[in-house]
Amino acid sequence: MQYYDTGFLQVLFVLLLMAFILFNIQRARGGKQLFIRRIPGLSAIDEAIGRSTEMGRPVLMVPGLSGLDPVGIQAVKIFGYITRTAARFATPIRLLLANAPLYSVATEMIRDVYQTEGVPERFDPQSVRFVTDRQFAFAAGVAGLIYRERVAAAFLMGDWYAESLIVAESANAVGAIQVAASTITTQTPFLIAACDYVMIGDEFYAASAYLSREPVLVGSLVGQDWAKLAIASVIVLFSLFGSVEKRFVQQTAEWVQEPGKAGEYRPIPARMKNNDELTPLRFFFPRKPGPIDPPRQKRETAPTGGDS
């Protein structure tokens, strides 16, 4: 049990999860067609753009407060897909951002979309705007634009925080059809309440991988699925093992660790195990041998108090 208690299994577990992702990215890069099921929310995207086209009003896209990180980039990738469809029908777009680096990346990406669609003249540089990086000023700016231009469709995708409801409620007030996706759990209920369709949690990543078919996105999505299955297996197996151990195996020794000394097991009269004494739980909380409380360097002037 000594090796079990060194915590090396934790490191192995994290490495295993990483390996799943890297392996699947490699598979996708090697030309393997990895399957991703279609997310129902994707159909709502085309429906919303169609409505904007019919009404001749702009399509609004907002990635919340996302920065130049995986969430922001994936949001812009979905916006690229939306813009492609909008460009074909000459539907005006508005992409509003709260992060300057993401703004520059998004501008390039949207311009590229118009060029690949063969209609570069339809790209309006004013359609991609950096509003501000202050949260509520951003919300006020986006709400103002929604009311002024009376957008017909709104796509709210990315990192959303307290500004989510202000924006979603404004778009709702002008009767826009709204499709939202956020990985922020606590904002999802507000988006569900105010929007027509919401992609929940990881569905956001799945949507961008499905639409872009980029090997890195597809591979990492499949790798994450494997990681989820691994975590679920660990929880089920450990729950079963722990339950059986608690029911049938008794504790006959107790872990003792004195300050400054290595810990050791000392025999005790047999009794039922406490939850933290179950073998599976020690995977998470290993008892590392060695001093855990080295003597502190105290200053001579140290007064009383300051308990830690």
Partner: peptide
């Protein structure tokens, strides 16, 4: 802070926030 050599010497760390 004159007696704080390590973060363990601090009694508690309180975070007040509106975000994660």
């Amino acid at each position: 802070l004159d007696r704080v050599q390590r973060i363990e010497d601090v009694y508690a760390y309180v975070t007040l926030s509106a975000s994660g």
